[in-house]
Design a protein around this nucleic acid. Sequence first.
DNA 1: CGATTTATTGAATCGACTCAATTGATGTGG
DNA 2: CCACATCAATTGAGTCGATTCAATAAATCG
Lengths: 245, 245
Amino acid sequence: MSHLVRKLEHFVRLSTADRAILMRAASERVRNFGPRIDIAREGDKPKDVRLILTGWACRYKQLEDGRRQIVSFFLPGDICDLNVFILREMDHSIGTITSVTIADLSREFFDEIGAGHPRIATAFWWESLVNSAIQREWTMSLGQRTASERMAHLLCEIFFRLRLAGLTRQDSCDFPLTQSDLADVTGLSKVHVNRTLQELRSTELVVLKGKLLTVPNLERLMNAGLFNANYLHMEREGRQLDANE
Amino acid sequence: MSHLVRKLEHFVRLSTADRAILMRAASERVRNFGPRIDIAREGDKPKDVRLILTGWACRYKQLEDGRRQIVSFFLPGDICDLNVFILREMDHSIGTITSVTIADLSREFFDEIGAGHPRIATAFWWESLVNSAIQREWTMSLGQRTASERMAHLLCEIFFRLRLAGLTRQDSCDFPLTQSDLADVTGLSKVHVNRTLQELRSTELVVLKGKLLTVPNLERLMNAGLFNANYLHMEREGRQLDANE
DNA sequence: CGATTTATTGAATCGACTCAATTGATGTGG
DNA sequence: CCACATCAATTGAGTCGATTCAATAAATCG
């Protein structure tokens, strides 16, 4: 089952027809990208909305002098910017981390959702509100959390998000980010990211080896990152909208 | 004319009926708040969507130990979180800076917009996409810009946003934020905010006195803040949706 | 007008940065 | 499959931007 459906079902219960239209949309107009490739660049005209099927990507912004900030991650099942097509040009770029498979979702697909699939429409709203909440939480992290809190918080968030999409096994998950990526997310230098990770490792909060992240004790990592999961709004909140089946 | 209408008209041309329904919504269910008051608190159940009629407010998050981050500002004409009511609880608080007048917008109002006012619906989408873009830009600022770049950037943003709502006169505008507020936005200490402002003043980039901000040379301030206005998407992008009048 | 908040200054400290060099992985072509 | 090249991770040393603490000055308010 697709990661998108899996994730949305945490929020609303979909009907067979709902699931079918999502699965269909995810199988048409599929494209592949290699790792470390730009899918879209600042200044481009936004066309389709993209659904990440497999792999990790990110949204980033860059200053003229090269300073780079990753402002969001896209994990499997994530949708990039509902409705961007009403804007004239992209104010940021989207690049892959790993190899990535995406499906382009057409305007017509969204029209169809709006017309006959209220539960999906609500779930998409939820997705978009959660993305805003994540962006706010990153603002909080960068503004107030110390280096190690920030790192711990980020690792928690990624772990929770992957778990919602069904992409963790017990206490571990794939983790393809380099320390350089982590520097661009956390606003720290590469050197300091390295030292911060050593600190988290030495206190056994995380095991990070190869491209695998293991969190032996999620509770402890959450405490270290002052992580409160409320902003991910993972409770089944749209119960009243459940399909009857 | 309301600041909301003024702002939205930068993006789409509204019909008389469009303007009328907006003006009506902005005059029903109006509430007043004093300065430095919480309008909503983290954990509350979100009910209505709020439109700021007059005054400045902000969205903020707080850690248990008291560290506080302002994550957005609400200026006259701004709408707080389209559609939040589908979430179960607030993950942040909303507080006033100055005295504030708001209008509560009902779910029914949005139903009406969705049914018969496509241009307003598009303009609301635009508003919401711009708010996301602002949040990303703040992430960029906190992660990559130096203290003085960050401050200059923030002042530019506020100036542009106020101008869009018709709230500037030549090169100046109201500026009710204290240095302590600025510290909570920029992630700097109060002391360093003070020194950063002195730096901006000494290079004649800004004049900040009383509760008034003057920007003698916007171009220079933009350069100092590495400010690129593209993320505010101020071009009239929805031309194809203009009302015929 | 005194009381309280806001702004300013100085001095000492610390977290994070830069620069530079080294070690360890990963990958590719001969 | 090894040799070489490249990229990623690690370590040390010195520096700097921003912080904390503490005291004073200025502005605002009832």
